[in-house]
């Protein structure tokens, strides 16, 4: 019986390894061929080159797209995190019905396909007279990043012992003082983590931005535009490798900060209570 069980466990371990390989192998293709000395992405590798990375250095349009992505990413991360902090706090500390409804609605975008978020906001920004623009993308990405921000912040506030703020209130501190001097500092790692992951969500987002960009494309939209040209393929691989590296560094940093700040809960997204339906 125990031999039976240990072969089962060995199979399971083998499966996990195969699964991780399946997850990472297609992604690894991009950096591998970004150094390949050929327009065609095919085996055998023909030679090592840094030419494609060099081609990124003096591409004016690419630099503009990068700047746009940074501005949009920071703005959307700021807005999503601000809303995430207030919504999460009001739901956990206040607990009234209105706050709970707002929190559910802030997590609702998980249940809306990106294409519908995109067209809904396209109509909205046209109605508001803004039209497709950087501001329009910021609004779209705030909405897309909102569920993640709310889930992270509410998880953190739930993990904070209630006694901390109760003590502050008993000593005469008002809500605002308690929030600013007690709650915010204790939640700082989660706030940083939420900001970074919201930034990353925006930085990599394509589906919604596609509808909302005017004359200023973001980085993923720039990549999309390049996909039409077979000759640009190796440069896209080089750019893609840089973007992948940036994403991995930011996500890892966010994870480290979050773990330092709160060993109590260890799941960032899609975790417990994430779905507004339950």
């Amino acid at each position: 019986m125990s031999a039976h069980r240990s072969t089962g466990r060995a199979w399971l371990r083998f499966y996990i390894v195969a699964y991780v390989v399946f997850l990472y192998l297609p992604i690894a293709i991009i950096p591998i061929f970004s150094f390949n000395n050929s327009i065609q992405a095919a085996f055998p590798l023909s030679g090592f080159t840094l030419e494609w990375y060099g081609s990124l250095l003096n591409n004016e349009n690419l630099h503009r797209a990068f700047t746009t992505s940074l501005i949009v990413g920071f703005s959307a991360a700021f807005l999503a995190t601000t809303i995430g902090v207030t919504v999460g706090y009001m739901e956990v500390a206040g607990g009234d019905r209105v706050s709970r409804i707002i929190s559910s609605m802030a997590r609702l975008p998980i249940l809306i396909p990106g294409v519908i978020v995109g067209i809904a906001l396209l109509i909205l920004v046209n109605l508001a007279g803004l039209g497709p623009s950087r501001i329009a993308i910021v609004l779209g990405h705030t909405l897309v990043a909102l569920p993640t921000a709310v889930v992270i912040m509410r998880g953190r506030f739930l993990a904070l012992p209630k006694s901390f703020s109760e003590v502050a209130m008993d000593l005469g501190a008002h809500e605002w003082t308690t929030f600013r001097r007690i709650v915010l500092p204790l939640a700082a790692p989660a706030i940083a983590s939420s900001f970074m992951l919201s930034f990353l969500t925006s930085f990599d987002e394509f589906i919604v931005a596609f509808f909302l960009s005017g004359t200023e494309p973001t980085l993923p939209l720039f990549v999309w535009g390049q996909l039409r040209f077979p000759k640009a393929l190796p440069s896209v691989m080089a750019l893609g490798s840089v973007i992948l590296l940036a994403s991995i560094v930011i996500a890892t940093a966010a994870e480290i900060i979050r773990r330092r700040g709160a060993p109590v809960y260890d799941l960032p997204v899609t975790a417990k209570g994430n779905l507004p339906i339950s």
């Binding site: 293709i29 999309w224 896209v236 997204v269």
Partner: peptide
């Protein structure tokens, strides 16, 4: 296993096109 979730969706799809 969750890290790929934080990488660009467009690039993951693009990688499959290349593959």
């Amino acid at each position: 296993v969750t890290l790929p979730f934080w990488t660009s969706y467009l690039l993951r799809v693009f990688a499959w096109k290349v593959v």
